[in-house]
Simulated scan of single mutants.
Amino acid sequence: MLDALHISIADQCLYGFAAGRLRLRLAVSTALNGPGERQGSGCTPRGRHRVRAKIGAGLPSGAVLVGRRWTGEIWTPELAAHFPQRDWILTRILWLSGCEPGRNRLGAVDTFRRYIYLHGTPDSEPMGVPRSHGCIRLRNADLLALFEQVPAGCPVFIDEAPCPQWQALPCTQGD
């Protein structure tokens, strides 16, 4: 079980830690618009977060989620061609909540109210390149494995540093 995640915007990687040791490294895709916390910015929020909700347990890989609910569809290239403007949220969701009032929590910078997730994306989408609308995209197979290793409440630190310099900083639990 992982007890902390660090997402580096600079190197487009997610690092998973257990007992202070690096256990996992996965390629991700953060926001095309870069880092930022404002509602409507299309940016990936920085700072301390936690996994507020885990959504999609038991769904098949490639399950299409809209409004955090399975549509009954499984992503295919044909489905993508039929809906070319969709921002595909697939397989699972790890929904983030900010821990720093005024930076990524409450008001116009609230990560949870911005619906910022770690989620699956079509395998045809590149990883290691900023392309999302603010969320953190992962390969579906990577997300399936990660989902099982991350408990609700797990700390997630997102920053621009190229290397994980993660320190155990608790989130505020009051919502």
Rank of each mutant, 00 (worst) to 15 (best):
19 A>C: 02
70 W>Q: 05
126 P>K: 11
43 C>T: 13
154 C>L: 09
163 C>K: 15
26 L>R: 15
28 V>N: 04
78 E>A: 10
79 L>R: 02
34 G>S: 14
168 A>C: 08
144 L>R: 15
153 G>Y: 14
171 C>W: 12
49 H>W: 04
133 H>R: 15
31 A>F: 14
96 L>E: 04
112 F>D: 10
48 R>D: 04
87 D>F: 13
40 G>P: 14
69 R>G: 02
114 R>P: 15
156 V>P: 13
138 L>M: 15
153 G>M: 06
70 W>C: 12
100 E>V: 11
57 A>V: 13
174 G>H: 14
110 D>E: 07
166 W>S: 06
168 A>M: 10
106 L>F: 09
10 A>R: 11
41 S>V: 05
67 G>M: 10
85 Q>I: 08
3 D>F: 02
5 L>T: 05
90 L>Q: 08
125 E>F: 14
91 T>K: 02
50 R>C: 01
132 S>N: 05
37 E>C: 11
66 V>Q: 03
29 S>Q: 11
32 L>D: 02
80 A>F: 02
164 P>E: 05
94 L>A: 00
33 N>P: 00
119 H>T: 07
119 H>P: 10
47 G>R: 06
79 L>Q: 06
130 P>W: 12
24 L>V: 02
139 R>Q: 05
166 W>K: 06
6 H>I: 00
144 L>W: 04
133 H>I: 12
157 F>W: 15
83 F>A: 01
68 R>Q: 08
4 A>F: 09
14 L>W: 12
67 G>L: 07
35 P>S: 14
16 G>H: 13
24 L>G: 08
7 I>G: 09
163 C>F: 14
171 C>E: 06
148 E>C: 00
121 T>Y: 00
24 L>A: 04
78 E>C: 00
37 E>R: 15
151 P>G: 03
138 L>P: 15
1 M>V: 01
58 G>M: 09
80 A>W: 05
65 L>W: 01
47 G>A: 03
